[in-house]
Simulated assay, not measured.
Amino acid sequence: MNYHVLTLFPEMVLSGLRTSIIGRAEEKGLLSIEAINIRDYSTNKHMKVDDYPYGGGAGMVMQAEPVYGAYQALTDKLGKRPRLIYLTPQGRTFDQQMARELAEEEDLVFLCGHYEGIDERVLEMTVTDYVSLGDYVLTGGELPAMVMIDCISRLVPGVLNNDVSAEFESFHDNLLEYPQYTRPEEFMGRKVPEVLLSGHHGNIEKWRRQQSLLRTRNARPDLLEKAELTEEEWKWLEKQG
């Protein structure tokens, strides 16, 4: 997996991603992260990349030329036009299913806007996917890009020490993850559930599944509509009040 981030703040992207699990994965050659400074492709002697919007209005708009220049240089280098994701509140909401889909790609390009956005013409010419993290506005696309890269990278084989954990976490089967415990067995009067100490793997898996069902119903009931539950599980949930 090769990530290419078109941004005005490359140091923000690289310093944020080249740590912990993602940083170690890059060191192992499991993925690569490249931050391309859009400002490097400005033809203005002052390296400006923004201007006032036509028609008036508050704020500034990123110009088409430097964005397209950065994009064209990248595609020339790669010899192809990979998927380009533009981070915007107007896009499709990012979720685990989209992460799985994007993890199948070899190259992903992220375009990070700033100010009041980017000239529409260059978006029409380059963007393949408009993606949002949610119904709110941030100062730029760098943080959403980093969130997406972190999430997608966890699905790349070898990135996690235990690849199984990538599948059996929150949102697996559209269910939230069950509670987790570790030593000591008792903390400030609170004990680890007995079933987890039993060594009976069948009972443990059943308990974990039930806890996932309860958590999802209580915190994210909307996810249950997409989850695949057996008739027995639906009946069990109804009995929990």
Rank of each mutant, 00 (worst) to 15 (best):
T43I: 14
F187S: 00
R100D: 15
R81N: 13
E106A: 13
P221N: 07
P157C: 04
E104K: 12
E101C: 08
K191Y: 01
H114S: 10
L17H: 01
N161E: 15
L197Y: 06
T7Q: 08
L155Y: 02
L197N: 02
K28A: 15
E142F: 05
R24P: 02
G91K: 11
G55F: 00
T43E: 15
A166N: 11
Q72A: 15
Y68V: 02
T128P: 03
R183V: 06
R92K: 15
L30Q: 11
V192P: 02
L197K: 10
Y41F: 14
T43W: 01
D50Y: 05
D40T: 05
M47G: 03
G189E: 08
M60G: 07
D163T: 10
I21F: 14
R24V: 00
M47P: 01
L87W: 15
E106R: 14
M47S: 12
N203S: 15
I204D: 00
A103L: 10
G141W: 10
L87I: 04
E185D: 14
L123R: 14
F187Q: 04
K77Q: 10
S198F: 07
Y41M: 00
L176A: 00
Y115Q: 04
E142D: 10
L237S: 05
L224Q: 08
A35Y: 04
L175E: 03
I36E: 10
L196N: 08
R83D: 13
G29R: 07
V5I: 15
E194G: 08
L138R: 00
T139I: 13
M47L: 13
E104D: 11
K45L: 10
S198T: 13
G55K: 12
E167Q: 13
G134V: 12
Y136G: 03
R100Y: 12
L8P: 01
H4F: 13
L155R: 05
Y41E: 08
F9T: 03
L84F: 01
L175M: 07
M1E: 10
D129E: 14
I152K: 08
T7W: 04
I33C: 11
P82L: 11
